[in-house]
Design a protein around this nucleic acid. Structure first.
Lengths: 243, 243
DNA sequence: ATTATAATACTTGTATACAAGTACACTTGA
DNA sequence: TCAAGTGTACTTGTATACAAGTATTATAAT
């Protein structure tokens, strides 16, 4: 009986969240990090016991995760799908698809306010780097992209983002946490890429946008394996592991 | 107290469905048809009473409809959004976005089996026309597009389709039902457009694909207003209305 | 040993109960 | 007349109970 006391998802982001939301976020992190292995079968009752809640919030969580395609609901139990290389490539596709679409729309809009907002977020990201706050950095990073997408006020593009965002958020969180430990020097490049993105929006330069978009995505998805292992090292702070 | 005895969603499609699914489908139809007006507020308890089920399936339905952006969950009650011209245009955008993407992928795949499958579906559609079965025609029409999308085996494009499909299905159902009554001659053109689409896939002709795609969408979205009114006329079979 | 049948331990979907929170109307006091 | 508080009737989220269905295992018969 391994008692689960540690949580991967930032607890402070869940202050006003329901039990259902908490379970959803935490379960998603465990699946995406690889802590909960692909192929394993989740039982509503077991999860309810693990998380010390009733089946209601668990059912809610499973429905959401199924719509995000990281689990698959079957007659008996939910099968964990997780993210393989194929899914990473697919997420890349969809991000490129929607952000390109958004950019095309932005070209015919006044982007002054947006650029201002993005600059603010970028400065927040720099502060987060300065204080080595990976979670805050991730939050601002996700917010950066969401702000761009939200700018075109398109509810069905937003629908796509709503489904993609939680997975992106988890990926970025895990990726950034390990980088703060291992590849701190990455961040100046990440900041620079985001600045390029802002410039592309400001000057409405399509080529620059596509270039910075690709670089942005690569920054998150370049190192996608062993996220759970690196997460483990992170939380144990280099302790020896006895098993 | 208007007792609700009539259902817009085809009951035979719900034979093995749960109460939650039934409520979801029927509520969606009522919203999209305009029978349940935009701006009105849905109460879980009222809906539970209306549909003679408990709150559990109602909650499930509201969550799904919110993810489809046709209602908005607030602190108290769910606000009906429905589909205005803006949303129609947005759905058009997203369909174009994903189906274009799918076509690009298909170009580098063997589409022989797919073309065969689509031809079969097209023949089914012709039979449905012959016997004036609007619901069966709609079913095959949705299946036609889903089959194309499914062919590239892309789980995150599928995720988008999963969210869009129910709304499309409702729109097509309502649109086709009124056409079978009013504009029967439309169907030869619709069949022709679908045949063009198949040809585009067979010959991998991008221009032809975009052309037939646009025509296909226009066929559904050209006449989008007063769906509920025409639905009413359909069900009353031309009776006089006293109220 | 193999197959058929029955018991079991699960599963899902639904109903219902309840706690905590929120909007709104209705007093009550000035 | 208006402001402040109070009560009522909602709301949501969660827990729990139960019916019906399904896989698995054990038991019995051949």
């Amino acid at each position: 009986m391994t008692e689960q006391k540690e949580f991967l998802y930032p607890l402070k982001w869940l202050s006003k969240a329901s039990a259902g939301d908490r379970v959803t976020s935490e379960l998603r992190m465990r699946i995406i990090s690889g802590m909960t292995e692909s192929g394993s079968i989740l039982s509503e009752n077991k999860l309810a016991a693990d998380f010390n809640v009733s089946r209601s919030p668990i059912r809610e969580a499973l429905k959401i995760l199924a719509s995000e395609k990281i689990i698959r609901l079957e007659r008996m139990g939910a099968v964990v799908i997780g993210l393989t290389e194929k899914e990473y490539a697919e997420i890349y596709d969809v991000r490129l698809l929607i952000e390109s679409f958004v950019f095309e729309q932005l070209v015919s809009l006044d982007t002054k306010d947006l650029v201002m907002e993005l600059s603010k977020i970028l400065e927040m990201m720099e502060i987060a780097i300065k204080y080595q706050d990976a979670d805050e950095f991730s939050y601002q990073d996700v917010l950066f992209h969401e702000t761009i997408i939200r700018a075109i006020n398109h509810s069905y593009i937003m629908m796509i983002w709503d489904n993609l965002k939680p997975v992106m958020e988890s990926l970025i969180l895990l990726s950034m946490r390990s980088r703060f430990k291992e590849k701190y020097e990455d961040f100046s490049r990440i900041i620079n890429n985001h600045q390029l993105y802002i410039d592309a929006i400001k000057t409405k330069d399509r080529d620059l946008m596509v270039k910075s978009l690709h670089q942005n995505f690569d920054d998150v998805q370049e190192k996608v394996e062993d996220l759970w292992r690196s997460q483990l090292m992170l939380s144990k702070g280099g302790e020896q592991q006895n098993d």
